[in-house]
């Protein structure tokens, strides 16, 4: 029999989330692949940016070096563990990964390793646990990130594996990737989610650290190929959440994509992930952003969706609207 996929290919992920109901039809398991080519200011998963394993430290979770101190006993060099007010606050070492032993003994996950090396077979084992639910609900696997395609061989083998098991596949990508890789993945995908962060090239560069040229070219390519596609816009106040940008996006969809997409989902930005930035010793770039009340912002989103619909674009606020593929 022809081998349908290689179970031994390894990759780095930072989470597997079961019962995910917002990332494609039905009940899904989302595999979050570690690493991204963008650097969005509003990113709420800073642990997803780099492909390598990282250590995170959460001082609030530490129960006190005097009461516990397990990390200290395990550390290759105790002086690298910085303690303030009796709690571990960070690890100062060139070789952070030597301290993953501290994470494995820490009872509260105050020290934790972001990321996990896994094989396709291992991921599949976890994903298949909910196969029954996928079949009942029309769900399946969603590959997300970071950037789902950043470890292309791993991602493609995962998609092949899911296909071989008869599981519905979705992928969420920022599309800032070589078209060749994309073309390899596309036939293995049932439904594609593409992020569209900003139509203005300058602003895109300013907010995400990359230009939108490749992204826009890719999305045209994808839609032209006939792949069922949903566009997601994380709507961030003062950044891309302006009527001007929304109109520009709608025009692009209407004119360049011939409106041939299933849905545009406007997702409300919320300040999340601040503690994760801190755990990585990074500043939260959106710390000073003033966000409107949730209800106000949701209303804004609804009216922005309305604006897009003026252009015949099937825009909705949120992820709960039925997707008919």
């Amino acid at each position: 029999m022809k081998r349908q996929y290689n179970p031994d290919v390894a990759g780095t992920i930072f989470n597997i989330q079961r019962f995910s109901v917002h990332d494609g039809p039905g009940i899904r398991t989302v595999v979050f692949i570690k690493g991204c080519t963008l650097r969005c200011l509003w990113c709420s998963n800073p642990e997803s940016i780099e492909s390598r394993l990282q250590l995170g430290v959460y001082p609030d979770r530490c129960i006190g070096i005097d009461k516990c101190g397990q990390c200290r006993q395990a550390a290759p060099d105790q002086s690298a563990l910085i303690v303030e007010n009796n709690r571990i606050t960070r690890i100062e070492s060139e070789n952070q990964l030597d301290y993953t032993v501290c994470a494995s003994v820490c009872p509260t996950n105050a020290i934790k390793v972001w990321g996990q090396r896994v094989t396709v077979a291992e991921v599949l084992h976890e994903v298949l646990k909910d196969k029954d639910f996928y079949l009942e609900s029309g769900g399946g696997i969603t590959l997300s990130g970071g950037e789902a395609l950043i470890q292309p061989q791993f991602t493609i083998e995962l998609l092949r594996a899911a296909r071989a098991e008869g599981i519905n596949t979705c992928m969420e990508t920022a599309l800032n990737y070589r078209q060749k890789t994309l073309d390899e993945a596309l036939p293995l995908i049932d439904l594609l989610f593409c992020d569209l962060k900003h139509m203005d090239c300058e602003k895109h560069l300013q907010f995400t650290a990359v230009s939108n040229q490749l992204i826009l070219a890719n999305i045209k390519h994808v839609v032209a190929s006939g792949k069922p596609t949903i566009i997601r816009i994380p709507v961030v106040p003062e950044h891309n959440g302006t009527e001007e940008n929304i109109r520009a996006t709608a025009r692009f969809i209407k004119e360049e994509l011939n409106g041939k997409i299933l849905q545009v989902q406007l997702l409300p930005f919320r300040k999340l992930g601040e503690d994760k930035y801190a755990s990585l010793g990074r500043e939260y770039p959106m710390a000073t952003l003033v966000t409107p009340e949730r209800e106000v912002w949701e209303k804004t989103l609804l009216s922005l969706a309305e604006v897009m619909r003026e252009y015949g674009v099937p825009a909705v606020a949120g992820t709960n609207h039925k997707i008919s593929v």
């Binding site: 109901v21 039809p25 039905g26 009940i27 639910f133 609900s137 769900g139 949120g318 709960n320 997707i323």
Partner: peptide
Amino acid sequence: PSTLSGDSGVNNLVSLYRS
């Protein structure tokens, strides 16, 4: 409530209990 909202929420709940 948000997990079960919308049409998809109803379908997912039915799938959960049927499974």
